[in-house]
Structure formats: C-alpha cells, structure tokens
Amino acid sequence: MKPEIIITLKNLGFTEYEAKAYLALLEKSPLSGYGVALNSGVPRSKIYEVLDGMAQNGEVLISYGAPVLYAPLPPKELIERRRNKTEENFDAACNSLEDFSSRVEDRDNIWNISGYDEIINKAREIINAATESLIIEIWKEDFEKINQALTNAVKRKIKVSIAAYEDIELRNAEVYKVPEEYQIGGDLGRSISICADGKEAMTGVVSLEIESLAATSKHPGLTIPVSQLIKRSIFIAKNLE
C-alpha cells in the first residue's frame, strides 16, 4: 500500500487501521474479515472491530453469509459522505461557538439604554424571552405599554408578579400595590424594574422621554440587586395590604 494514500485518508479522519482496511477492499473485494486482515496488515484481533465501525458509518458494505463478506463504498461516494459530514460538523461548531460567545458576552456586560421607546421595547424583549418567571416594579402608564406582552407571558404559564405603583389589573398574575411612602422615584421620575427568570434584568427611569435612561444585563451584579429590590417591594405590598 502506498503510504501517501494512507496519509490522505488519515487527513480525512480515518484511523490508520481504517485506511488500510479500506484500501485492501478497494484492491480486492468482497473479502472475509480474515482476508481483509491478511491483505491490509491490520491485526486479526482488531479487524472486525474496525470493519464493524466502518460499516456503521456506511463506508463498508456487509454481505451476511458463511463467511461474512465485506466490500468498500465506492470512492466518490465515500468522499462525498465525508465531505457532507465535515460540513455538518463545521456548521454545528460554528453555531455552538457563536451561541456560547453571545451568552458569555451578554453575561459579562451591562448595557445602557437611552430613550423611552427603546426602554419599553427592551422590556418587551425580556418578557418575551422569559421561560419561568417575571417580577416587575412599574407605574400604570408604563404598564399599559407592556400589557399585551405580559398577557401573552401569562398564557405561556409564566409566573408574573408585579409591584404596582397604581391600580393595575392583569388576569392570572400576582399584582400588589406598593404604598406611596415606599414607592421608588417620586420627584425623580417614574422608575421601571424587571427581572426574568432571575437571569436577565433591566432598571431605569422612564419619565424623561428621549432622555430616559436604563441599564440592562444578564450579569449577576445587576440581576441580583434588581430582583431583590423588586421582591422587597412585593413583600412590603403584600404585608401592608
């Protein structure tokens, strides 16, 4: 067997034993396992394991009889199969790495959001991405902007709990009115805070129109304090009802 052909097959992902067995079958087939071992130089103790593995990959054909005989997949079909498998692996690796990179980047950064509409749109995105729970601290005027997104979340069986600064109604959600003396904002403007699944949060001031400002992140440095502040408001509202 020519060493350069074995090297080429190894570059395609074959082991040395697989390359030798395949070339032996190209030279002469069909062959029994013993015949493949004899012609390829692959040890008899390994040949059936090698051939069975190649058969599972569709690279060797088997004829069950007495004895069992083996034949190679034609070279063009073999190369096409390997090419497709390699492309699938590259695509899977690309998608996995991009997803991992995106999640790491999102988790490690705290992002600023400017403008009322942008903040409300981000609130909707967080609500739509929730899979288990949502806790929110909000004024009625701003609640109306995200009411539909919250209604859809409830329909998805997301647990929604709201610390409301005014009379707010949301069917099948837990809504608690925060006493005025415990409300955050006041003269500083209306505030909004939201946390989804304990993993993504946003908090900010939304009464300044285009100058409204908020911060959002999946970083624990923001998600933990925001969720704790909302839970504190809910606790106060529940116990002072």
Rank of each mutant, 00 (worst) to 15 (best):
E4R: 08
I5H: 10
T8M: 09
K10P: 00
K10M: 15
E18Y: 07
A19C: 06
A19N: 06
A21N: 07
A21H: 06
L25M: 11
L25A: 02
E27K: 14
E27S: 14
S29I: 08
P30V: 03
S32I: 03
S32C: 04
Y34N: 10
Y34W: 11
Y34Q: 13
Y34L: 09
V36L: 10
A37T: 07
N39D: 03
S40P: 05
G41Q: 02
V42Q: 02
K46Y: 10
K46W: 02
I47R: 10
E49V: 07
L51S: 09
M54C: 14
M54S: 11
A55Y: 11
E59R: 15
V60P: 03
P67M: 06
V68S: 06
V68R: 14
A71K: 11
P72L: 09
L73D: 01
L73N: 05
P74S: 04
P75T: 05
E80L: 13
E80G: 02
E80M: 11
R83F: 15
R83Y: 15
E87D: 10
E88T: 07
F90C: 05
F90N: 13
D91P: 00
D91Y: 11
D91F: 09
C94N: 05
S96C: 00
L97S: 10
L97A: 12
L97H: 06
E98Y: 02
D99M: 05
F100M: 13
E105C: 00
D108N: 13
N109G: 00
I110M: 06
W111F: 14
W111R: 15
N112G: 11
I113K: 02
I113W: 00
E118H: 13
E118M: 02
I119V: 14
I120Y: 06
N121Q: 08
K122M: 10
A123M: 15
R124Y: 01
E125G: 00
I126N: 04
I127S: 07
I127P: 08
A129T: 01
A130M: 06
T131S: 11
E132L: 04
L134S: 11
E137D: 12
W139A: 09
D142R: 01
E144I: 08
N147C: 12
V154M: 02
K155V: 15
K157G: 00
S161T: 15
I162K: 04
E166C: 01
D167C: 01
E169S: 12
E169A: 08
N172T: 00
N172L: 05
E174A: 13
V175A: 10
K177G: 00
P179Q: 12
E180P: 00
G186D: 03
D187K: 12
L188C: 08
R190H: 09
S191G: 05
S193A: 15
S193P: 00
I194T: 09
M202C: 04
E209D: 15
I210C: 00
E211F: 14
E211S: 12
S212N: 06
S212C: 05
A215H: 09
T223A: 05
T223H: 05
P225Q: 09
V226Q: 07
S227C: 15
Q228D: 05
L229E: 12
S233A: 14
S233N: 13
I236P: 03
K238M: 11
L240I: 10
E241L: 05
